[in-house]
Design a protein around this nucleic acid. Sequence first.
DNA 1: CGTACGATCTGCT
DNA 2: GCAGATCGTACGA
Length: 199
Amino acid sequence: MMIAKEYFLNDDVLFLAEDLIGKYLFTKIGGQIAGGVIVETEAYKGIDDKASHAFGGRRTKRNTTMYEEGGRLYIYLCYGIHHLSNIVTNVAGIPDAVLLRGIFPTHGEELMLKRSHKKIITDNIGIGPGKVSAILGLTTDFDSTPVTSDLVWLEDRHIVIPESEIERLPRVGVDYAGEDAKLPYRFKLKNIDSISKRI
DNA sequence: CGTACGATCTGCT
DNA sequence: GCAGATCGTACGA
């Protein structure tokens, strides 16, 4: 069952980043479905978060989507190569977002394998924010696309994950953010096996 | 207009 | 463990 828009309007982006672990993310692009279980996320919290593109209330062409109403994708290009996908949360005007850092493939593995340019499926084919976008077929073309549509959507299939199985870590690649670089805003499933056995 | 650099990944050592 | 890829974006002049 698709997760409805209201879910993403929650003003606690840290709660959502953790709660999204274990939820399913799907895309249907070119009529082909790909999807998997979210296993790693990072929270970016409003205009006071030095690691965020919206720090200090910055509004640019790139980050416009962060200020839109929760429930859309914010996708941007990183290092000139990688498309990184976030889910915008909170009400319009407050730039909270959850970066998708890892999924465990469950649907359309064949398609995802092709998109990954690898030879064989491995457990880490969807680990890393660039790879999440790559195997799901998400590019900056999908920036601002609702995650409550036939193209991109989330599902709660009621996988129960004990809090003890989720690690809280500092975010990756945000050393420039000073003190905020140390905040434990990254959520990661300790071992993917605990998921793969439950599917 | 010019410049610096990034919410990364891969391959080679 | 480390360098290189690779280019859009941000920002200052």
